[in-house]
Design a protein around this nucleic acid. Structure first.
Length: 283
DNA sequence: CACCATGTTCCTTG
DNA sequence: CCAAGGAACATGGT
């Protein structure tokens, strides 16, 4: 479920549920997701700790905790990878097949499940230090953005996935932002004009903010086998159309462009799908 | 069997 | 040293 908007919606959902809760027990069922920590070290650190805050940086979740005996503040870092979910469930309920970590809280269990185990729940914060500016704050400035783009000949779509350029844009919203800005995904990053960099910055902020607004109105349902409403991907069964209809180009190859009616095309860049309108987006 | 999938990191090559 | 490209990670859906 994870690009910046989905993580933001999740953070807002979890914040009031976790604040003040104490971790009674820790169960690491898949060691890989806590690396480079060991399950033992993580368990020792978390057991007895209390949640003080839940925040987001890029696609990462930052759980602020205070350890029991020593009152030491520290941060637990979460990332959902491609298929991760985090939620509270009834205590002792049936665990999902791919439960990676379970934190027992007084009243319920905090569950991190991840089908592909690409995500993380760890004390290692090094990944966050490499992130670029938060796109929805004043830290994301057009001048610096344009300057960074000048240094790369990569196609702009590929460059947008670089988390050190700007944090939180993923494969779906990269295509969406370029469509809003009217710029071809193939354009070399260093060939954007300052004006275009400004339009792209605005496009990024627009698609991310819209998605958060949209996602915030959806009641989340983490029951086993259910969609949580944050899963925008998948023309699969069920009514996730709410998200899908906000996506103007992603996964719409062969369909008419909402703005001009041309056929939306798909191409592969850096072995990932890109979707765009050949008429609205200038090469 | 084939290909596709919301992400990041590591390795190789130039 | 850097930029860029590709494979790897792991599982499931169509």
């Amino acid at each position: 479920m994870p690009e910046l908007p989905e993580v933001e919606v999740l953070v807002r959902h979890l914040r009031p549920l976790l604040r003040g809760k104490t971790i009674r027990a820790v169960q690491v069922r898949r060691a890989k997701v806590v690396s480079p920590n060991s399950p033992r070290d993580l368990t020792r650190m978390l057991t007895g700790a209390k949640f003080k805050s839940v925040r987001r940086r890029g696609k990462y979740l930052l759980f602020g905790l205070r350890s029991r005996p020593l009152r030491m503040e520290f941060i637990l870092l979460g990332h959902l990878g491609m298929t991760g979910r985090m939620y509270l469930a009834r205590k002792g309920g049936p665990l999902p097949k791919h439960a990676a970590v379970v934190l027992s809280l007084g009243r319920g269990d905090f569950i991190y499940e991840d089908t592909r185990y690409f995500g993380r729940l760890t004390l290692d914060l090094s990944a966050v230090e490499k992130l670029g500016p938060e796109p929805l704050t004043g830290a994301f400035q057009a001048a610096a953005f344009a300057r960074q783009l000048k240094k790369s000949r990569q196609p702009i779509k590929v460059k947008l996935l670089d988390q050190s350029l700007v944090a939180g844009v993923g494969n779906i919203y990269a295509s969406e932002a370029l469509f809003r800005a009217g710029i071809s995904p193939r354009r070399p990053a260093n060939r954007l004009t300052l004006r275009e960099a400004e339009k792209l910055r605005a496009g990024i902020r627009l698609v991310l903010a819209e998605a958060i607004r949209c996602g915030s109105t959806i009641p989340l349902n983490f029951a086993p086998g259910k969609t949580d409403g944050l899963f925008y991907f998948g023309r699969a069964a069920g009514g996730l159309d709410y998200y899908q209809e906000r996506l103007l180009v992603y996964d719409r190859a062969g369909q008419p462009c909402a703005r001009c009616g041309s056929v939306i095309r798909r191409l592969v860049q850096a072995s990932r799908s890109t979707f765009f309108c050949p008429r609205c987006q200038k090469t």
